[in-house]
Design a protein around this nucleic acid. Structure first.
Length: 562
DNA sequence: TCTGGGGTCCTAGGACCC
DNA sequence: TCTGGGGTCCTAGGACCC
């Protein structure tokens, strides 16, 4: 808690949806909903236009479609969001060396750490300036909160939304917080809210009055203590720079529950390999392998196994995940599978050590054979288990055998990490995750899997061709290029046809054309930069990267909608 | 047409050790 | 010869956040 409002919280407004509107001129001023488009998808972000219909983050897509049937529904394009986020974070970095990113679209900045501001007036002008810069560089709007603590800065930015700035002057916070609902405080979700409500507490003032002991009794030590402090406006958490990740995980929800054990196992092995690719891309290794299973009835369980030492070997992780699966009853069906690795270490030292302690490996001078490639240890699982004898060292796959593809990029492009499960799933049902808007009924489209040798895979997960026989799958919102018509994006697809709108971030709203899904002139493409790459002559003054003719926000009329 | 994906932190019980 | 106490590690689950 400091005496001046010099902790800044930035929150970009409806970030994913706003990026899509900036990239797709025909969507400006219209309801846009970004999220999973499959039968089990949920809303990631809704534009403010869509929120007017009651659409909210985390809402099931099916419900969103009922509320806003005429909105544009788009698959997320994380690579674009990441690149925009990077530019925003760069701007924050100019304000202070102490920047704490919370997600792609949110961060705390300690303005005192860099000497940018020590008083309220200066902080305010820094915040206003930041908002202008963000708009100029990205064409997007962000909301800024300024206060003497993280909690209050965040509450302030929430109040500021959209496209505003709010300062909470130190000294005023208790009065401000008192009438607010308990959900305002960080760490209070639906469960805690209900818990407190049953104890007769609904406002922050109620919590302050209850006293620490009462809250600890109700919610447990850690939660109780911190909640009581927050209710009094006390929050001394410092802004901390980037932290190392503590776990890496991947998971898939299937369009249709999986019943076949063989298929379930195959999916687990795929997930294990994807997880390892991410782990290695981050230059880490981990000691504990976690399997997650969500069953048909949404009950979720996890099983974990801790190895002797950290590994980044796909074979080791895959086999551990498979062992864990053996102990799980999946009768009734599986809705989701996930594989994660925790207990992360930077792999170099630990793995060399683990290799040494594991004794001589059959591979001989493993270290030199595999080059710098880390060595993995397959360890005894259970503490008292007989596992000690199962220790075996392995030289892991050389780095270049692992798709360099992944890079820092979460968008897992399918690619073999090693000789894992074959390219096709043992049975043909229920593809995971992002299924097309067409992907509705039963077995009709469900035969294929994205195979290892798959069709020309787009740079972004959504764009690629999935194993739909006789044609590729085109996800709504994905970037494409046509040999004749140029750059555009998929507006929709179905029954062998794909509809594309040809426009670019800086163009006027474009035209729509329809093609056969297997049209050879049409291919997935890289996303275009929002504002001219690098040399951005941002259209000054006006709305986010407006089309040249100015005022033409496709406005009111129910004009051409997707 | 009920409920994504990637994380973090906390709690609680049992094993194990001193 | 009735069984304390504390610390650490591991596992499982739950709440929460964006």
């Amino acid at each position: 808690m400091r005496a001046a409002p010099t902790i800044l919280h930035l929150d970009m407004d409806a970030f994913f949806a706003a990026v899509e509107q900036a990239a797709k001129p025909s969507l400006r001023g219209k309801p846009v909903i970004v999220g999973g488009l499959g039968p089990r998808g949920v809303v990631a972000t809704a534009s403010y236009e869509a929120r007017r219909f009651g659409v909210r983050s985390a809402m099931p897509m099916a419900q969103a479609r009922r509320l806003a049937p005429n909105a544009a529904y788009l698959v997320p394009r994380f690579t674009v969001y990441r690149s925009v986020s990077l530019r925003v974070m760069e701007l924050l970095g100019r304000l202070s060396p102490l920047v704490e990113p919370l997600s792609l679209d949110e961060a705390f900045v300690d303005l005192e750490a860099g000497g940018a501001a020590y008083d309220g007036a200066t902080a305010r002008s820094v915040g206003e300036r930041l908002r202008r810069d963000i708009r100029e560089v990205t064409g997007l709007t962000g909301s800024v909160g300024l206060a003497g603590s993280k909690m209050l800065a965040k509450i302030a930015s929430e109040e500021a939304k959209p496209d505003g700035l709010v300062v909470i002057e130190p000294g005023t916070e208790r009065a401000l917080l008192a009438p607010m609902g308990v959900r305002t405080l960080p760490g209070v979700g639906p469960a805690t809210e209900e818990h407190l409500r049953r104890a007769g507490m609904t406002t922050v003032a109620d919590l302050a009055e209850a006293g620490e002991d009462e809250l600890v009794r109700l919610l447990g030590r850690a939660h109780g203590v911190s909640l009581h402090a927050m209710a009094l406006g006390r929050d001394d958490r410092p802004v901390v720079g980037e932290r190392d990740a503590k776990s890496v995980s991947v998971e898939d929800t299937f369009d249709v529950d999986l019943h076949d054990r063989v298929r379930v196992r195959w999916e687990v092995e795929r997930l294990a390999e994807r997880c390892v690719r991410r782990l290695r891309a981050a230059g880490r290794s981990g000691r504990t392998v976690v399997l997650k299973v969500r069953r048909y009835d949404f009950s979720t369980l996890t099983r974990s196994e801790t190895l002797r030492g950290p590994t980044d070997d796909p074979v080791v992780v895959r086999e551990a995940a498979a062992r864990l699966l053996d102990a799980v009853d999946t009768t009734g069906g599986v809705r989701l599978l996930g594989v994660g690795v925790s207990g992360l270490a930077d792999y170099t030292q630990e793995d060399l050590f683990a290799q040494a302690s594991a004794g001589a490996a059959p591979d001989g001078p493993a270290g030199s054979a595999g080059g710098p490639g880390p060595v993995a240890v397959r360890g005894a699982a259970v503490p008292g288990g007989a596992g000690g004898s199962s220790v075996a060292a392995r030289v892991s796959v050389p780095p270049d055998a692992v798709g360099a593809v992944d890079g820092a990029d979460g968008a897992d492009v399918e690619g073999r990490a090693d000789g894992g499960p074959a390219g096709a799933p043992p049975d043909g049902s229920g593809r995971p995750g992002p299924s097309g808007p067409s992907g509705g009924r039963g077995p009709s489209g469900g035969s294929g899997r994205p195979s290892g040798s798959g069709p020309p895979e787009g740079p972004e997960a959504g764009a690629g061709g999935e194993g739909v026989p006789g044609g590729r799958h085109w996800a709504a919102g994905a970037d494409v290029r046509h040999a004749v018509h140029g750059a555009g994006w998929v507006q929709g697809s179905g029954v062998g046809r794909v509809t594309v709108r040809f426009e670019e971030p800086w163009s006027a709203p474009g035209r729509v054309r329809t093609f056969r899904t297997d049209d050879p002139q049409l291919e997935p493409s890289d996303p275009l930069p929002l504002v001219g790459g690098g040399s951005q002559p941002a259209p000054s003054g006006t709305e986010p990267t407006c089309p040249p003719e100015g005022g033409g926000a496709p406005g009111a009329g129910g004009g051409a909608r997707p």
